Amino acid sequence: MREAWRWFGPNDPVTIEDIRQTGATDIVSALHSVPTGEIWPLDKISTHKKLIEQDNKPHSSLVWSVVESIPVHEDIKMGRDNHQRYVDNWITSMENLAKCGIKTVCYNFMPVIDWTRTDLKYQLPNGGYALRFDQQKFAAFDLFILQRSNAEDDYSVKELADAKLTFEAMSDEDKTLLTQNIIAGLPGKMTDAYTIDNFRDMLANYKDINKDVLRKNLFSFLSQVLPIAEQFGVKLAIHPDDPPRDMLGLPRIICTSEDLDILFTSLPSPANGITLCVGTYGSRPDNDLPAMAKRYGSRIHFAHLRGVSRDEDEQRSFYEAEHLESDVDMVSVISALLAEEKLRNGAEGNGEIFIRPDHGHQILDDLNKQGNPGYSCIGRLKGLAEIRGVIKALKANL
C-alpha cells in the first residue's frame, strides 16, 4: 500500500518537513486557492507539486499522487442551464493534473455541504479530543436555529421533543458554536462559509431536486468525464456522503452498497471508482465494511482508514474513534485491500492502493496548537503507525 498524508498547502500547520518524519511517501492535496468551478492551471499545479517535491534529493521523497478534491460546482449538481462551462473546466483541470503525473482524483457529489460534524472538540475520557456528530444537536440546529421550512416533517414526535429539550438547554454560546461547526466551512476551503440566510438560500435551491434528479446529474457529469479520464489514465474515486444519509432536506446518493451497485451498473468504466472511507460508510450500521472492501476491491482507488463509534441508543450519533478501536473491523478491511492488491499485482504489477489515516485525535503537544479540525499531526501519526503495523503483520502471512 502507498502511505499517503493529507496536506492543505503552505498554510497547513503540519508542514512538509513534519510529514517526511511520519514515513509517509505520498501526499494528498489540492489547489484550495482556485475558486470552485474555475480551471486549475498547469503552472499552479506545477508550483504546488514543486512545493511538495523540491527537497526530495537531500531528504526522504514525497510525491503528490492524489488530489482531494477537485470540487464539483453546485450548478453541475443542480443541472442548471449554465453548468456545461463548469463540467468543461473540471475536465480541463483533470487533464492538467494528469499532464503533471497526478492521476488519482478523489471528489464528492454532496449538495451544499461537505462532511458535517456538530462537535469539533469532543473530549474523550483520556483527555484528548475527537470530532463528533450528535443527532439531537443536529436536529436542534435544523429545527430551532436554522428553522428550515417543513423541517418537522423529517422527524418523529419523540425526535421533535428531544431536539426541543436539547435546544432549550443550550446557552447562546453553544448555539453560536454549533452553527459555526455546521455552516462555517471546512479546512482548506473545501466548502464555503455560509451565513444562516445564505445557507437557507442554498438549501432552497434544491427544493425540487430528489435522489433521482441528483443521480441523473451525477451520471451526466461522469458520462463526460470518464472517457477523458480513461484517455489520460486517471482514476476517479468518489467519496461517500458524510454522514451517509439525507440531511437538511438534501438528497444524498453515495451512502450504501446499493448506491454503488447503481453507479457501477450505469457507468462501468474502469476509471469509475471509489474512495473507501471506512469511517463514513461505517457510520451506518447496515454497511458491512469488510464485505464492501471485498465486493468493490477493483473499484477502490483510494482509502481513508479511520473508524467511528456509534452511540448505542442513537445509531446516527457517533464520534471519531481510535483507528483500530471502532465499530469497524479495520483488520479485516485492510486484509481485503491487501488481497485486492495481490490480485492486481498478479495481473498488472502496479496494484498498490493509496491509503491515508484520517481524522486523528487531538492529543499530546497538539492540545496546545491551533490546527485544522480532525487533521492534527500526532493523532494521525498514531493512526498511521497502527495501520502500518497491521499491514506489516498481515503481509507476513500472505
Rank of each mutant, 00 (worst) to 15 (best):
W90Q: 05
S93D: 05
G101N: 05
N82R: 09
I102M: 06
G101A: 05
E95I: 12
I76R: 02
H83W: 13
D88A: 11
D75F: 13
M78W: 00
D75T: 15
M78E: 01
I102W: 04
D81L: 11
A98G: 08
L97I: 07
R85Y: 13
A98D: 09
E74A: 12
M78Q: 10
N82V: 13
L97T: 10
R85G: 03
Y86T: 02
A98T: 08
I91G: 05
I91V: 07
M94D: 00
M94N: 02
D75Q: 10
W90C: 03
M94W: 04
Q84P: 01
D75I: 13
K103N: 14
E95C: 11
V87I: 15
L97W: 01
D81G: 10
R80F: 11
N89D: 08
R80K: 13
Y86P: 06
G101E: 06
K77R: 13
N82P: 02
I102H: 09
K103A: 04
L97N: 08
Q84M: 10
K99M: 12
K77A: 01
I91A: 02
M78P: 02
L97A: 11
D88W: 08
W90K: 07
K103M: 06
N96F: 03
E74V: 11
H83D: 08
N96H: 05
W90T: 09
D81N: 12
G79M: 09
N89W: 06
M94Y: 03
H83A: 11
I76W: 00
G101P: 06
K103W: 07
I76K: 01
R85C: 02
R85L: 14
G101F: 03
N82E: 14
R80M: 13
Y86Q: 05
L97V: 08
M78N: 00
K99P: 04
M94C: 05
A98V: 09
K77G: 00
K103D: 07
E74K: 11
K103S: 08
W90M: 04
G101R: 00
L97D: 04
Y86W: 10
H83V: 10
N82C: 05
K103T: 13
N89E: 09
C100F: 06
R80Y: 09
K99A: 11
G79E: 06
L97K: 00
W90H: 08
R85W: 10
Q84A: 14
D75E: 15
V87H: 00
E74T: 14
G79H: 04
M94E: 01
M78C: 07
E74Q: 14
S93L: 03
D88Y: 07
M94S: 02
I91R: 06
N82I: 14
N96Y: 01
T92F: 06
